[in-house]
Amino acid sequence: MLRRAWMFMLGGRKVISGSWPLYRICMLMLTISGAFQLITGKVPGSVSATNSPEWTDIVYMWMQFLGGAVTLASLTIGWRDISAAMGIERVGAVLVAFSSLIYVMSVVDYNSGPPTSSGVWLVIGVGTYCAYRVFEISDTFREAERKRREC
């Protein structure tokens, strides 16, 4: 069973612009974090401490969980249908980028200043990379469409 789990983590499609297992591991950790938040009904203290309505906490939890899970699934199934996998990855990356933005803005509001924890800066990095992937995937689709028209 451990071997199967390891193969799931390391198998599938590789993203050239990102560190291969790191991107997949980050998405797995986001999925696990989102699942625990949904199960317990608790978001990080900095998110719940904002003056936003309670429904925004629920949206945050679902965005984080679905963003990680959808991106992870796209990387796992990617070798079968690359176009579909990249489209699915783009949806997941948008969700991860926005959930990361929500978290970071909550921390800034909670701290009344910039984040000081390395964990928050890692979230900034993952969110920024996911935003980059959204544009990178869109460029790939545009390039493929341009080449298709030339043929």
Rank of each mutant, 00 (worst) to 15 (best):
C26Y: 01
V59A: 06
A85G: 07
S52R: 08
A69R: 01
E145K: 11
V96L: 12
W55I: 07
M9I: 14
F141W: 05
N111L: 11
I88T: 10
Q37W: 07
A84W: 03
N51G: 14
F36S: 13
T140S: 00
G119N: 12
S83G: 06
R149W: 03
W62K: 02
S112Q: 09
G113I: 04
A97K: 02
F135C: 07
L72W: 03
I16D: 06
G34I: 00
V70Q: 01
R90C: 03
V104M: 14
V108W: 11
N51H: 05
G87T: 00
W55E: 02
A69K: 01
T116Q: 00
G18L: 11
L2F: 03
E136S: 11
L2G: 10
A84T: 03
M1Y: 06
S19R: 15
M61H: 08
G87P: 04
V70A: 01
V107G: 04
V59G: 03
E150T: 14
R146W: 04
S112G: 10
G68S: 07
W62G: 05
A131M: 14
V43K: 12
S100W: 11
L10T: 14
S106A: 12
G34V: 01
A97E: 15
V107K: 14
T31I: 06
S17P: 02
E136T: 11
S52C: 05
S83V: 02
G78I: 12
L122M: 14
A93L: 05
W79M: 06
L28R: 01
S117L: 15
T71A: 13
S33V: 08
M105Y: 08
S112P: 01
G127E: 11
M63P: 11
M29R: 11
F141A: 06
S117W: 13
G125Y: 15
G127N: 05
W20N: 00
V70R: 01
G87C: 03
I32H: 01
G34D: 10
Y103Q: 09
A93C: 03
K14F: 02
E89C: 13
S17W: 10
T140A: 00
E150Q: 13
S100P: 14
G119R: 08
D109S: 12
V91P: 00
A97G: 15
A84F: 11
V15G: 00
Q37D: 11
T56I: 10
V96K: 04
V47P: 05
P53D: 04
G125D: 13
L75R: 03
L122W: 05
R4P: 15
S106P: 08
R80Y: 06
V107A: 04
L122V: 12
V96H: 09
P44Q: 02
A131Q: 09
